[in-house]
Design a protein around this nucleic acid. Structure first.
Lengths: 200, 200, 200, 200
DNA sequence: AGCTAATCGAGACGGTACGTCGTGTCTTTTC
DNA sequence: GAAAAGACACGACGTACCGTCTCGATTAGCT
């Protein structure tokens, strides 16, 4: 007969296909931009039928959101000091916005913000990064480096926003910097943020 | 004889059409979002043939950029004090990123940043705002409120970036605020920036 | 294993759509003439997307050629005598050139003749009718009614050309004739042709 | 005062422009075929503004008709015998249908026949040629070579139609013939027509 | 010489069709 | 029943042309 938790009838989903589709989606987006990101192209690049994509996602927008999610991992740094944590997380954020994949995330979040029920939820997209920053904050409060009343959100926005503006207006120059040059940028921003928080 | 700057031959462009097209473009964008913004729709709404649009702009994207430009005016505030100027310019920036037309600018600048020679120049798009902020800075230095060595660019990025992140992640809530509520946000950000600059 | 002539992968073409498209093409041509024959109009009338048309034909011209081909059937009459055959085939040809669909064929053949590699091959269009006439000839030669040296082609051209000139210059009047009236015309032409052939 | 047939006020039409336009129209038609014949192109080639064309003709179709007319001259041959006249006129007709400009006439007449009040009047287009043939007939009757009861119209249609069918189905080959080769064709057709008329 | 008026080249105007491509759905065979 | 393949109806893209219009410049006859 049938085992109670038997697999559903028919051919099982190809788990590998998920990965191929997600990779293809990000690659197409990075290659041709928002306007040139087409589901036909994704299917072609992934070597997959369109129906296989529509079985998993409702439309091309939600595929993009999921793709970005699946490929975004914000490391939860813990260096023992607020400055150390901020430097680590800022350095990581800088690399992120200067990378092609990372910048796609920003684009998607920006694109989705003004189409309330049309596009992807930007909070859903951006949250991972912010989450990491919040953890840094919490530990700083626990360590007594910050008061609980410190204006968390605005400071987060300043730090994260600095990186975005840098990636937007100064991209070429920043991409040309080596690790040492980027460290200077990071130091500067972290110093400003800490001073703003009265914790320098 | 001939006047050196004589008009070109043929029927002159209809200046009124420019306005109708720009208004229609922004209206279509606001109504249907990025995905639903179609040149056919713009032409229909403006009561204009598509050729008249393509005579002026090379594609729908550059029309959008120009439309946003044409309807964007960054006021060169001058209140007499750094804090006053920053509050004014920040309040204006907040309204800007929360507006539909303003957000389009941000989106376009973001979209164009990673496609070096493909899309519109992000600096061209973003510059007007930054220009205003730089003027504020210059006057503050002249008044002696800031030292000439103050880290201008990072501070600008923090301020402008804060607004962008707010417009991205907290859009719904911020749009719901009245003038008073927005003033609180502005104060908070300006205070942080001034403190970061050691000028509070 | 696989059958050698297995069907190609994917959804098969909708055979019904072919018919609807062809009918719509001829209807549009007949209704609006050559200048007003538009592929958009054909698609609309056929209730079909343009892509479905372009999957089958490369452009509007080749659709028209195929449409005419598909709806043209030249009956292979066989009455037992040359005069009988010629009368039958001439009567049919007269009806043909006076009909809207038939006249379209002539138009297309004429249009295509002077654009060697641009338009449809006129021989491809006109051949079916000529084919029928040639069969009539062959049987007449077999029966001994005509010598094998009789100038086939010029006589064919005379007969067929008479109908075309009639359809061109005398269309209104001929269309107004009843079957009896048309028979008079047919008799006259056949008599002339037979006399020209020295076979009266 | 005023002379009764004074010239109208204002700048007179440029007679030279008529010629340039007509030549350009035929050249464009010959170069790009019916589909590629555009008024914009004619204006460009003639070095003329579109308004100058529309001052003279109501649309591109009637320009074409007039252009063909203006460059068509049907000689009223008179050789003294029916056979001689027919040979002359047939040779001329053959050259005509094989020429680009001549074939345009045929095409226009054909196109206009089935759109009663839409296009140019086919009789207007075709008449000149038929007129010439009728004169030939009349003289033959006067000379007693033909009886007044001879079936004029059908014979005319046979002769003229033969040429059209030849130009349509056998164009390439006939265009390749030299004067001698064409003479053979002409003889054949004339012989058939004369025999049909019982006048050989 | 000045006035009037139609024509000239040029080219923008609102429309519409072209042929291409992408959407999200549907239909087929194969696994 | 999922997979791939690809056809389906629809509609936007950017281009080209239609026939109309609006310009400044020209070219005449009439004052």
């Amino acid at each position: 007969m049938d085992r109670p938790d038997s697999r559903p009838a028919g051919r099982p989903r190809d788990a590998d296909a998920d990965d191929r589709i997600i990779d293809a989606a990000l690659a197409e987006y990075a290659a041709h931009g928002h306007a040139g990101y087409s589901l036909n192209g994704v299917a072609r690049r992934a070597g997959v039928g369109k129906s296989s994509i529509y079985l998993r996602w409702s439309d091309k927008e939600s595929l993009l959101v999921d793709a970005v999610h699946a490929r975004t991992d914000a490391p939860d740094v813990d260096t023992g000091s607020l400055r150390g944590d901020l430097e680590a997380v800022t350095a990581w954020a800088l690399d992120y916005v200067l990378s092609s994949a990372g910048w796609v995330t920003v684009r998607i979040a920006i694109d989705g913000a003004d189409t309330p029920n049309g596009g992807p939820d930007p909070n859903q997209v951006g949250t991972p990064h912010l989450e990491t920053l919040r953890h840094v904050w919490e530990r700083a409060v626990e360590r007594g480096e910050l008061s609980a009343e410190a204006p968390t959100e605005p400071a987060l926005a300043m730090l994260y926003g600095s990186m975005i503006v840098g990636g937007m207006l100064d991209r070429q120059r920043l991409q040309g910097l080596d690790a040492r040059g980027r460290q200077v940028i990071v130091d500067q921003v972290v110093t400003l943020v800490l001073r703003a928080l009265g914790s320098d």
